[in-house]
């Protein structure tokens, strides 16, 4: 329980109901641990996330936002990858305009069985945020 004293960064994850949610659930099933300050909000598809939500999360105090994108597995079609990439680009610009470090937004494709990769992403993102921010 040595971990208890260690602070962890607040990360908001946007995940998708059909694809990345199952991977995040399976990480729990397999008891693959990641910081408990990682919170998930499910949306149908990662290309439906509004940049304003992400900016709102920083404004309210989240250290980082992670988009667990559908990638090519998206049930709504392959245009998802490109569209999600586009909205991340748009958000990065908005972040710069508002003086928010763009590295605080990350995205990776998390497929329905990518539990280990999700946990790895969370751990490294947490470490990065702890190092660069006064959490």
């Amino acid at each position: 329980m040595g971990e208890l004293n260690k602070k962890s960064a607040k990360i908001l994850v946007f995940s998708t109901e059909k694809i990345s949610d199952p991977a995040i659930d399976m990480a729990g099933l397999l008891k693959l641990h990641y910081p408990p300050t990682v919170y998930t909000i499910s949306v149908p598809c990662s290309s439906g996330i509004k940049p304003s939500w992400i900016l709102y999360a920083y404004e309210k105090g989240f250290d980082g936002v992670f988009i667990a994108a559908d990638g090519s597995d998206c049930v709504f079609g392959e245009s998802c990858t490109e569209k999600t990439g586009h909205l991340v680009g748009k958000t990065h610009n908005l972040m710069k305009e508002n003086g928010i470090e763009p590295a605080r937004l990350r995205m990776a494709a998390i497929c329905s069985v990518c539990s280990e990769s999700f946990v790895k992403q969370m751990r490294t993102f947490n470490e990065y945020l702890l190092k660069t921010r006064d959490v």
Partner: peptide
């Protein structure tokens, strides 16, 4: 979801798991 995403994912950290479950239910 406070099992797969709280109690199980953070079974190494009961305080953290409880804290997270509280936020999830509030959400």
């Amino acid at each position: 979801n406070i099992r797969e995403q709280a109690s199980w994912a953070h079974s190494d950290n009961k305080i953290g798991a409880t804290e997270k479950a509280i936020h999830l239910v509030q959400a």
